[in-house]
Amino acid sequence: MRLVNIRPTRRTTALLGAAPLILLVLAYLVASASRHAFNPADKILPTPGAMIAAMRALVIEPDVMTGERLFWSDTFASLERLGLGLAISTLWALIAGLILGLIPLMRATFGALVTTVAVIPPIALLPILFIVFGLGESAKVALIVIGILPLMIRDIAAYVESLPPEQMIKAQTLGASSWQLALRVALPQVMPRLIHAVRLSLGPAWVFLISAEAIASDVGLGYRIFLVRRYLSMEIILPYVAWIALLAIAMDWVLRQISQRGFAWAHGAR
């Protein structure tokens, strides 16, 4: 049988998928143990015990200065920024995408502008954002929005444009106005695509969040990582990175569930 025709079963898929992750963890444990055997004070590859001890201080015990449990206040601060940035971007991507995709006049007027903004590296705008919005929360949220919104608008607009023209003509012969075309034909069909666009934007959104937090912040997952870097505290950085990965996976999974449950017609339901 040809290699391309061998399809794993569900069980095999799960096992195969877990194998590299398990190997990675094992490799880390072996490397960590061997480094500590050579130098018990090693900071580069901390042992799981050291990680748990360091994280216990952040997760369970309140901070001496603020009285807060730092891990949780970091998490909530970051999720709030990320959630705000994603929510604002999603809403505007939907509105602007529909308008640009449906109305040729609007596309002619604003299409070039969106394309221009989309090619500017958002991090290059970060100083401007700090100058305009100050060092508070708005600058960080604004960076996420500027970072992901133009691409989301372009994706949604392109998708609306690519809806079959036959469908638009048909809707018009059924008496639909421009407004009804947007509301009843384009909007419902664009929703699964919008969720897809959000899922794809999650990665860049995290990048911009961590960047903004690293540069100017006093709380947040990115802030903490960059703060403890000064002390080579890998026992905090590694669990934080794993936690960020876990949060990102959970968000992606939730979005996929929403799309599959809410828009079964778009997932080839049979």
Partner: peptide, 20 residues
């Protein structure tokens, strides 16, 4: 020169709404 409800149409494909 605009489509209206006095003229109905059926194309070879894509004349129905997939989300309904």
């Amino acid at each position: 020169p605009e489509c209206g409800p006095d003229r109905g149409v059926v194309f070879q494909r894509y004349s129905v709404f997939p989300h309904l």
